[in-house]
């Protein structure tokens, strides 16, 4: 039952964080194993989804620090993220795809803590309060991390676009 409810959420978080499909699969499996071993510690008064996301976040960041997989490249964007809105003009679609590609591949330039905050806020669309609970941080710190992450990505995008225009 846990697998049916939560595997998609955990896998997507692991994939967005690591950027590598086979690695995200292994990480999902390891997180579930950790979940089964930690179920006894779950406090029933707490929200289970938030608790599970905290556990996943801790595991992902721990593994990231241990193995330093940021040195490995993220998957090519086109492999898994080709979906785009059908209502856009073809020209707009191309620009959007280009932006998405640059941003997807730049996510590993963010530190693990900042990347996690940006993923939870902007990709997964969680509220700042929920993220603060998951990360165990004050609201102001979460907002500042998301802000810094977005700015970093915007600067990368800006530099990339300027380079393309010069060419």
């Amino acid at each position: 039952m846990l697998v049916n409810f939560y595997s998609k959420r955990i896998f997507n978080l692991a994939y967005q964080f690591s950027g590598n499909y086979p690695q995200a699969e292994d990480l999902t499996q390891e997180i579930f194993l950790k979940l089964y071993n930690s179920l006894a510690k779950y406090d029933f008064e707490k929200d289970f989804s938030a608790w599970l996301l905290t556990l996943s976040r801790n595991y992902l960041i721990d593994q990231y620090r241990k193995t330093k997989w940021e040195k490995t490249r993220r998957d090519d964007f086109n492999e898994y993220y080709l979906a785009s809105s059908a209502f856009e003009s073809p020209e707009n679609n191309v620009i959007k795809k280009e932006n998405k590609k640059i941003i997807w591949e730049s996510l590993n330039h963010l530190s693990s803590e900042i990347r996690m905050a940006v993923i939870l806020r902007d990709i997964q669309g969680k509220k700042y309060e929920e993220i603060a609970e998951i990360l165990g941080l004050p609201l102001g710190t979460v907002k500042s991390r998301v802000n810094r992450g977005r700015l970093h990505l915007a600067k990368i995008l800006k530099a990339q676009k300027e380079k393309e225009n010069e060419m």
Binding site: T28, K96, A154, K158
Partner: peptide, 24 residues
């Protein structure tokens, strides 16, 4: 920079949620 920031915001929100494959 604001235009780029808006694009970042929009692009991140547009990333689709992937389905878990049967093997996993």
């Amino acid at each position: 920079l604001l235009s780029r920031l808006e694009e970042v915001h929009q692009s991140l929100a547009d990333f689709p949620e992937l389905d878990v494959n049967q093997d996993l």
